[in-house]
Structures are given as C-alpha cells and as structure tokens.
Design a protein around this nucleic acid. Structure first.
Length: 644
RNA sequence: GCCGUUGUAGCUCAGUGGUAGAGCACUUCCUUGGUAAGGAAGAGGUCGUGAGUUCAAUUCUCAUCAACGGCUCCA
C-alpha cells in the first residue's frame, strides 16, 4: 500500500501501482471523466502513470493551467496525425502548447497549405478525435528510436534525438500517429471536442533565421463547443479594442503610402493626446529636477562612431545622407546629443545629478515585417531623459526613476506590470556587449539592489542587456492581453567614457559620470497605442480629444448651445457644438460612438433656465446642471487627471 | 528580411473575362424632433501600382508596393 496526499491535505491509502485515473474513479466517476493529467509530487504526468510510492497527487482537469497545457499539447499531436494522414511524407519538428492554444512546426516539402485545406484538416481532427484513441506512452531505446525515424527519413526528429540519452526517450502513439515526445498527454483524443485551426505561418527551424523555414500551423481547442464559441467571441471583442481600428475610428492617427511605412501621421485628435501626455511629463520632470533640452534630428557619422552605436545598430538606422562629403544619420536615439550638451560646459560635482529631458523624435529603420500599427514604427517620439550622476548617487537616482514609473502607472490605472532586469552574457563581451567585465558585474548588482530595496517585482533575463549596460524593461499588458514593452530604464557606464564626459569632484579630480537612460512613458506611438486598447478608446476626460459635445435639440436652440460651447472653450475645456439638423437621438448616438466623455443636451428647458442637461458617455442621462457648476466640476476632474 | 494571406468609394464590404455595386459617412432639400440611427435626392472609384496573356482584364499570370497573421529582430 502507498499513501497519497491530496491538495486539501487528506491522505489516503491505495494499492501500490494504482494510476491517478483509478484514484479519480475511486473518488467519483464524474471526476474521472474530467481528469486530463496528474501532478505527482509537483511533476505533471499521464493520468495512467502507475504510482509506486507515497506521493502528493493533484488530479489535473481543464480548469488547471497545467491541465490546459497538456490538453493543447495533445491537440498538437492530433493536428500532426491529421496532417500526416492528409499529406503523407510530412516531417515534424515540435508541437508545443502555447499561452492560448498550440502549434506544430512541420516541413511540408515545399507544399503550401491553403485556407480551405486548413478547414479540411480541422474536420479531419474532429473525425480523429471521435475515435477516442488513447495516447499510449512507450519507453524506447535510443537505437530503436533512431531506427524508427531514420526509416521515416525524418531528420528533424533525428536532430531532437541526438540531444537525448538512452533511458529518457519515450514515444507517444495515438491512432496511427507516433511521435517522439516526453509527454504527458491526456487519456484519449475524445476529450478534444472543439477545435479551431487559427493560422498558418512560417517559422524558422530552431528560431534561427539562417535555418530553413518550416510551416507552422496554429490552433486552439476546448473540451466543449461553448468554450470555443466564447473564445471566438472574445477574439471578436479584442478586435474592437485593437488600437489600429480605434485609431482610425477616433481619428487619432493614420498612415499613408506616400509618406511611407511605419511613419504615422498624427491627426488633430491624436495630437491633443500627445500634448496632454507631454504636459504631464513636463510637470512631473520639472518637479523631479529635470531640465528640458531640444536637439536636432540628425547628426554626423562621427558622433555615432564616438557613441559606438554605429557598429552595433547601423542596420536599424536609416541609411546616411551625404552633405559636403560628410555622412549624416537620422538619429535613432537621443543620448549622444544629450552627452554633447553635458560636455558643452565644464561640470562640477555640484552640477550633478544633471538630468536632461527631451521628447525626442527618433527614426529607426525597423525591418518591414516588424512594423505593427503604432507599436513598431519608424518615427517615434521618446519620453527620453539622461541622468548624469556620480556613482554614489546612482542608487538614489535609479530609485527615483522607478518611483516615477510607479507614479505614472497609478495615473493611467496600470496595475499589471513586471520589470525585467536584462543582464549581459559574459561569453559575448566584446561582441554584443562592451568589454568591461568588472563594470558589468558592478552595475548589475547596483540595479538589482535597487529593485530589491524598492520591493518592485522583477525577473532577471540573461543576455538581454543593452550594449553599454544592464537595463530594466517594463512589461505591461493591454486590456486585450497584448503584451508591451512600455519603457526601458538603462544604466550606461560606457558612453560617458567614450564621449570623454567629465566632472570635477570634491578632491578637484576629474571623474566620469554614470548615465541613466530612462523613458517611463516609452514613446508616444507605443504608449498611445497601448492607451487606446487599455481604455478601449474611452479616454479619461483629461486626455479626451473632445471633452464635451454640445447637442442642440433643434436648430432653434443653436444660438444658446453655441453660447454654452463658447463658455466651455473659454474655461479651457475642449468642446464642440453639434448644430446639425438631426434629431437628438441621432446626435447622441454619433457622439456615443465617438466615445466623447460628456454630452450637454440643450433644449427649451435648458435655454430658459440657463442650464445644460448632462449626459456621460456610456452612462446615460445625468440630470441638469447650471453651466458654471458643471464647468467647475469638469475643470477639477481634468486637473486631477482622473482615470475613468 | 523570411513564410503565408489580403488589397474594389472616406469607412465596412458585395461582385464580374465585356471598363462596377450596397450600407455608413459626405453635399443639398424636406422635417424642428427631449437622451443610441426621421425622409428624399445628389456627388464620389482609371477596382493598390506596373507589365504580360486576350478581340477585350478590376477579374487570369508575373512582378512590385502596402497592410495583416506569424518567424527573426527591437539601443
């Protein structure tokens, strides 16, 4: 007998060799039907794994994250089975579960799969799932495994096998499909009741663009049709919040073929959002001791050679233009320009920390395939600043920057974020990273300490640093679950020296300052893209391009409505008058769709009594109010930058 | 940059080997209406661009540009 402990703490005795599935059956038949896999001492295993010693057991169902992952991984095998039966001779690479679904990478030998064929595969999967084929695990020797895939001529699986040892190789078979796989899998294919193959894409073998490109089929599956329907509905909803769609509907930005890819044109509405954000940044930075600067959009090649950017990033800069025999580059970053401002005057320790801020316009030649709405563009406006400080001030300054991030997050109601501490890889010193092993270690430790001291949640990622120092990236998620790298906060111990930046310390000696690069609001492009999705286009009052729409009930009241509009404009509120000869219902509908926060309805009653009838977007009629009173209310809401 | 898909009016989208349609938006007229679409008329497109096949191309073929879904990349 063995003792099995359950998540609720209960311990029960079972015969040695019992499987999690049998345990589930002993508890309830209904439970057994739902069991997908089992967590045994924290390791996810097949529900058919014999339990031979005391253990902690958690029966996994669709409701568990690990259960879903197993379900989707098994779905990937089902996809492979369908593909193999439809297109014999296909070679498979790997088919993992992902965040929401699964994919399988395969070599179709030059064949293309069309949208219709994708539907055929989907039907085939449905058909195969109904066979209730068990996923059967088999341990196999390396020799036999190699023989099997050699016979099949599958060099991809042979490549996988080359990294495996005897004794750790298992095959899984369901129906007519056998795959090299560590598992675990669900009990049988019949559990996969609703399947949707979502897209076909190319994917480099092993993620390396030098390698051959395989065909990747993405899909998602569920234990019942309703969940699939819900999922598809959710995708539809997500589309409505897509910043590209909202940006067009709300006239925030546009792209034009003649201007060029990745070069957004900010329309009047978008420009208002930009200006409000800049106002916020300027206020915040001014009170934090920053000084504003303005620098040109281009600079000579020599400066980027000095900074060291050119050899590292030339490919992602616009090609140079030549004037009077000298090459000029469009700036892809603001730092070198700021360094030149630092070095323009002799600096004393009394000048430090010197914090130079600029909403700098940068141009980056992103590869064409990378462009994505406002999220990846070639012209961007960075909420940039560089802090020049003595080493002893570093921790304090770095922490103040982090505090500023948090302050902004509160204003925008961003409560889900993770900071990623990106470190260097010692093996790549001198190539990807500046060859200063000691400085790397030292600054990485300083940054880590600040994060620990400030109790900010963070994860460490190796080999992701900037070439001149470690950095912190802030990951946030928009309301539709899209992940953004919003902002970066970087330490730079290299450029100060490269630019010969110096200050005189207390002992009358020259020292090179440390530099902090920071951009809490990232770029206007990415941040406004994020905000559009975050707010679903319903900007809070302070950011709304049009804050109040004044709607006259009939043309008779246009003069008074116009007076109201003027009063609002005079009070600094962005108001517009709708004096069209339309009915009030129509005007309200149009304004609602434009997601304008406030509507003032003006009719006979309002005109006679000097009132406005207030209506809040999405919330309906909010009753009447005297004009002066509502102006006071709105002004205060705007000043406080209320989130919705 | 690579793989795949798409490209028709300002927007959303039908459609056809014989040089084009709808709804919304726009303009004008009628209506002056109290909290999510009143009615009518009109204007608007060399069907992304270039070449080829054809008596004839928006439709078929190729190239190119752009967008989209991924991969790679992201100071």
């Amino acid at each position: 007998m063995i003792n099995i402990r359950f998540p609720d703490g209960a311990v029960r005795s079972y015969a040695k060799g019992i499987t999690p599935m049998a345990v589930a059956k002993s508890i309830a038949e209904g439970l057994a039907k739902k069991v997908i896999a089992a967590s045994v001492d924290g390791v996810v295993r097949d529900a058919s794994t014999p339990l031979n010693k005391d253990c902690e057991l958690k029966l996994l169902t669709w409701d568990d994250t690990d259960g879903k992952a197993t379900f989707w991984h098994s779905s990937a095998h089902l996809l492979a089975e369908a593909v193999e039966s439809t297109f014999p001779g296909v070679k498979f690479w790997v088919g993992p579960a992902i965040d929401k679904g699964f994919y399988y990478d395969m070599d179709l030998g030059g064949r293309h799969i069309s949208e219709e064929e994708l539907l055929t595969l989907e039907k085939k999967m449905d058909e195969l799932s109904k066979k209730n084929s068990e996923y059967i695990r088999k341990e196999i020797s390396k020799t036999d495994a190699v023989a099997y895939f050699s016979e099949k001529g599958d060099e991809y699986k042979l490549d996988l096998l080359s990294g495996l040892q005897d004794g750790e190789i298992t095959f899984y078979t369901q129906g007519n499909f056998t795959d090299l796989c560590r598992g675990p899998h669900i009990p049988h294919t019949g559990l996969i009741k609703a399947i949707k193959l979502t897209s076909i894409a190319g994917a480099y073998w092993k993620g390396d663009e030098k390698n051959k490109q395989l065909t990747r089929i993405y899909g998602v599956s569920f234990p019942n049709q309703k969940e699939l329907d819900d999922h598809l509905l959710m995708l539809e909803e997500a589309k409505k919040r897509d910043h590209r769609k909202l940006g067009k509907e709300l006239s925030i930005f546009t792209f034009d073929d003649d201007v060029g890819p990745g070069l957004p044109l900010w329309m009047p509405n978008g420009t208002i959002v930009i200006e409000e954000l800049e106002k916020l940044a300027k206020e915040t930075e001014q009170s934090a001791g920053y000084k504003r600067v303005v620098t040109p959009h281009i600079a000579k090649e020599s400066m980027y050679l000095t900074s060291g950017h050119l050899p590292y990033y030339q490919d992602s800069m616009y090609p140079p233009m030549e004037l009077e025999g000298v090459k000029y580059y469009l700036k892809a970053m603001n730092c070198p320009h700021h360094h030149k401002i630092f070095s323009a005057e002799s600096r004393s320790y009394k000048d430090l920390p010197l914090r130079l801020a600029e909403y700098g316009t940068c141009y980056r030649y992103e590869q064409s395939g990378e462009l994505f709405g406002l999220m990846r563009v070639r012209c961007l406006h960075m909420n940039d600043a560089h802090i020049y400080c003595a080493k002893e001030d570093f921790a304090k300054e770095f922490r103040a920057v982090n505090d500023m991030y948090i302050k902004y997050f509160k204003i925008f109601g961003i409560d889900k974020y993770v900071m990623r501490l990106s470190l260097h890889d010692p093996a790549k010193l001198g190539q990807k990273y500046i060859n200063e092993p000691e400085l790397w270690k030292e600054t990485e430790e300083m940054v880590r300490q600040v994060l620990i001291d400030s109790k900010i949640p963070y994860v460490e990622v190796p080999d992701e640093g900037a070439f001149y120092g470690p950095k912190i990236d802030v990951q946030i998620w928009s309301a539709i679950g899209r992940e953004f790298t919003l902002a970066t906060n970087q330490v730079d111990f290299a450029q100060g020296r490269r630019f010969g930046l110096e200050y005189t310390n207390r002992d009358n000696q020259s020292e090179t300052p440390l530099i902090i690069h920071r951009a809490p609001l990232g770029t206007h492009e990415r941040f406004i893209g994020f905000l559009l999705e975050h707010y679903a286009g319903k900007f809070p009052l302070w950011l709304a391009p049009v804050q109040v729409k004044v709607l006259s009930i009939s043309e008779k009241f246009n003069p008074y409505a116009s007076e109201v509009t003027q009063a609002l404009l005079k009070a600094g509120i962005r108001a517009e008058l709708d004096d069209r000869g339309e009915k009030i219902g129509k005007k309200i509908r149009d304004t609602e769709l434009l997601k304008i926060p406030y509507m003032f309805v003006i009719g006979e009653k309002e005109q006679n009594e000097g009132l406005v009838a207030v209506r809040r977007q999405g919330k309906g009629d909010a009753g009447q109010s005297p004009i002066s009173e509502i102006i006071t209310t709105l002004t205060s809401e705007i000043q406080q930058r209320h989130s919705n």
